[in-house]
């Protein structure tokens, strides 16, 4: 296997808060090849969005980011200065946000905003930038692309705006795209279209994509690799098939039991639940973070938690198979 495009080792993010330090992200490891889609899935407060902002160098000044390694195509992002990060952002790595209306500037036309992305990073003429904008708008499935250039964001529907956002992210031909809940604000029909488009583009242009979402359906259909985050830690990583067909961490299993699965969950039957709430991440955190909500918690959960499994499917749990041995294997 070739050198990965992105390699992150032991990423930690600390946020100073009144009365201590919030350890928002702890010891995250992952890597990503070109042409691959990695999905980081987790609930609110799991640190998934912070992780993506850390990669882009977009964390606030007060937030402390540490990593043993954070390499993007041989560039050490932990040492990259502001200027270098600015040159990378929007050029070789770009980001798509959840709410296109707030990410697009309402005062400028779509054509101007698309061209801007290219003019910032490339030595091209306005006309060349314009041509590229038309080309990409067509690529993301916008009809009459040339006539759209003069339109303002508020003149477009939500689905179209998200397509424009994607076109803008692609202007410089990035190698890495980070999409943070790109379809959460959209209707299911539009969601399917946008996700299809993203996946096709990743394959066609040999990019890598990090898809951040809470929607397990989106993850299953789009991701090659899945990283499940809980309270700032990766509790389970693996191929989409492994995660959905053989979930091993109690949290992953719990999450999958919480959603109705057509054909598998009886209609109207009670769904699974995960009792309790995410613990406070301020101050010292030891042992397994999920133990307060876990059916399988034992005394050893307060200690060091080993990594189980192999590189293509790993989880962190004191139990070798992710559940107490005295119980029957969960269905």
């Amino acid at each position: 296997m070739s050198e990965p495009l992105l390699c992150v080792r032991n990423l930690n993010i600390d946020i100073p808060v009144g009365g201590g330090t919030l350890h928002a992200v702890r010891g995250i490891d992952f890597e990503l090849q070109r042409g691959e889609v990695l999905s980081i899935v987790g609930e609110s407060g799991s640190g998934k969005s912070l992780t993506s902002l850390a990669l882009m160098g977009l964390l606030g000044k007060r937030i402390d980011r540490r990593a043993d390694r954070m390499d993007f195509d041989g560039i050490d992002l932990t040492r990259a200065g502001k200027r270098q990060m600015r040159a990378l952002r929007g050029d070789r790595m770009s980001m798509i946000f959840q709410e296109p209306m707030t990410s697009l500037n309402p005062a400028y036309t779509i054509g101007d905003q698309l061209a801007e992305a290219l003019l910032l990073h490339r030595n091209v003429s306005r006309q060349q930038a314009r041509d590229r904008a038309v080309e990409l708008l067509e690529k993301v499935g916008i009809t009459a692309a040339a006539s759209r250039l003069g339109q303002y964001p508020h003149q477009l529907s939500g689905g179209l705006r998200q397509r424009v956002m994607i076109a803008m992210a692609l202007m410089c031909g990035p190698e890495l795209i980070i999409a943070d809940e790109p379809t959460t604000a959209l209707d299911v029909t539009i969601q399917a279209q946008i996700l299809r488009l993203l996946v096709d583009l990743v394959r066609e242009m040999d990019m890598a994509m990090i898809l951040i979402t809470h929607d397990l359906g989106v993850v299953a259909r789009v991701a090659d690799k899945v990283a499940v985050m809980y309270a700032g830690e990766l509790v389970e990583t693996g191929s989409a098939g492994a995660i959905f067909n053989a979930p091993s961490h109690p949290y992953t299993r719990g999450l999958l039991r919480c959603i109705p699965l057509p054909g598998r969950t009886a209609r109207g039957a009670p769904l699974g639940t995960i009792p309790g709430i995410v613990p406070s991440l301020v101050g010292e955190i030891g042992g397994c973070v999920f133990r307060t909500r876990c059916d399988h918690a034992v005394a050893a959960c307060h200690g060091a938690i080993p990594h189980r499994g192999e590189a293509d499917h790993m989880f962190r749990c004191v139990h070798p198979h992710g559940h107490r041995e005295d119980e029957e294997t969960p269905a």
């Binding site: 399917a192 259909r221 098939g241 959905f244 959603i259």
Partner: peptide
Amino acid sequence: RALLDSVLTPEPGLGVPDTHLGAAY
């Protein structure tokens, strides 16, 4: 049918369905 087709059930390997809903709402 188009609406139901666009539902993404958590079944890996199926990919994202094509809804065939071309034009916008």
